[in-house]
Simulated scan of single mutants.
Amino acid sequence: MIRKSDELLSIGEVSARTGVAVSAVRYYETLGLVPAVRTAGNMRKFPRHAIRRVTLIQLAVRFGIPLSEVGEVFASLPEGRTPNKKDWAKISTAWNQRLEDRKQAIARLQEELTGCIGCGCLSLQTCNLLNPGDELGLGGQGARRI
């Protein structure tokens, strides 16, 4: 008897269950983010946990986490079995720190931009954000960042 957790899904079923285009599921598989097996007829079949992986990939992308980082985190998941709650918790912990770091960087940027927009200097000579202390002016006249 085949357990529901051992059931393999077609690429169309994974697409329908996740709301992700078939081409995206195929792309994730080529990147090694979603495991698939080939049938005798060369059709892709995905384990049920691929649904969770695709959903997590979409969330990661929405939060600005690059697919390369998703791959690094997914590499810690077991290959021979469906990931369990402990496995997913490990991923959550890793991403929480990354998201916290990004949140702090965005807050700093927001502070700097608020000061910049409110400054009104309209001058790169006195801009504390792009040219603090007129460091670029020390190198002489003309463009310094080109």
Results as ranks from 00 to 15, higher is better:
S10L: 08
R144N: 02
R53H: 02
E72V: 07
I91L: 12
G115M: 08
S23V: 04
Q125F: 13
R108N: 15
R3M: 03
A36V: 05
T114I: 14
S92W: 12
G115I: 05
I117E: 07
C116D: 04
G80S: 15
G118F: 03
R17E: 10
I2Y: 03
Y28Q: 08
R144H: 05
N84M: 11
Q58W: 01
W88E: 09
I117F: 12
A75F: 08
L8C: 01
R52Q: 11
A40Y: 08
L122E: 14
A89G: 03
P83C: 07
G80V: 15
L122N: 12
E29K: 03
D6A: 10
I11Y: 04
I65W: 01
S10D: 06
Y27R: 02
R3G: 05
G120L: 03
Q58D: 05
C127I: 03
E135C: 14
L136E: 11
R52M: 10
K85G: 14
V20A: 03
A21P: 09
A40I: 10
T114E: 13
R62W: 02
W88F: 11
L138A: 13
L9N: 02
V70L: 08
V25D: 05
E111R: 11
I57C: 02
N131V: 00
D134W: 10
T126N: 05
L33E: 05
G120A: 04
N84T: 13
E100V: 09
T126K: 07
T30L: 00
P132I: 06
S23L: 02
P78C: 10
K85A: 15
R17C: 10
G19H: 00
R53V: 01
L124G: 06
G142P: 11
V25F: 05
K90N: 14
E135I: 15
A21N: 09
L130P: 06
A107N: 14
G80P: 13
Q110T: 03
A36F: 04
L113E: 06
G140N: 00
G41T: 08
L122R: 15
G142R: 12
S15L: 01
I57E: 01
N84V: 13
L77E: 01
G41K: 05
Q97M: 10
E69I: 02
